[in-house]
Design a binder for these strands. Sequence first.
DNA 1: AACTCAATCAACCGCCTGGAT
DNA 2: GATCCAGGCGGTTGATTGAGT
Length: 314
Amino acid sequence: MGRPPCCDKSGVKKGPWTPEEDILLVSYIQEHGPGNWRSVPTNTGLLRCSKSCRLRWTNYLRPGIKRGNFTDHEEKMIIHLQALLGNRWAAIASYLPQRTDNDIKNYWNTHLKKKLKKLQTSTQPQSRDGFSSSSSMVSEPISRGQWERRLQTDIHTAKQALYEALSPEKLNSGNSGSSLTELMKPPASATYASSTENISKLLEGWMRNRPENKGETTQVSPGTTTDTMSSNQSKSEFNNNGIELAEAFESVFGNFESFDSSNSDLSMSPDEESKPNLNMPQLSLLEKWLFDEVSMTQGNGGEVTLDDEQINFF
DNA sequence: AACTCAATCAACCGCCTGGAT
DNA sequence: GATCCAGGCGGTTGATTGAGT
């Protein structure tokens, strides 16, 4: 037989977490570390499903989480990665360690999808199948085999370009030191959320009125800024390290248009967007973008860099 | 001030995968 | 090898908040 069930559904509390519950959870994780979620409800006395505990921790209580507005840089990375990986939010989130997959997913669904759609409608009329009318996919249908080979080639080229662009040698040369590698590192002091002091601060946070804190770039929980976490850096250090992009989001897509109008196809049908975008023009576009990124990286002192592990991902 | 509608985001649901038995 | 479950993930929902009228 397998393992016993994780939790029976009866008597399991749902809905928003209370400060008391958070404190119980944080205290427990502080002591035992995350993991073995199954035992968390029983050991803490929380009337929550183990899944709910894990989710609460990973999406909310985990130290080093940056909340609030996404920077242009983050936006750009998300768009990059979404084009490359599709809706694999956890994978995308691994490149933005300060952000949770849930946050990124929400941001994509509420902001970026709209932006892309807006941009797409403003730049190019769509054919009925959702592809650009200028796309070779429409004008010159190719066989699946051909298409897959071209896809492989494109992916390989893009990966190669990205690897070259982000290889440590290049990163070190002319890098001002505020590389994404550093940016991506969890805060050095990001041990588990809370000392007793931090827990009390956490509680204090909830006492404040939420609206006052709304809109601040760093917010850990309603009315609780990351100041309450052990990683004060998340507010100051990360924001400072995150190199402000010279170009705004729009200008990024301005680059798209400048590449080749036939490649500025950012269209996504509802079906397409849920999986990696395998439409050829999109990948060529990405490839060009990646190449473009190289020059940007070299030009502005390391805009997008990845560490070895991240590079190996490709 | 009251109401409506849209935007946001925390949390839930259900599926999938890999590991334990 | 088969079965079962925990953990992880992506999609979706619903409560809350803010903007507009």
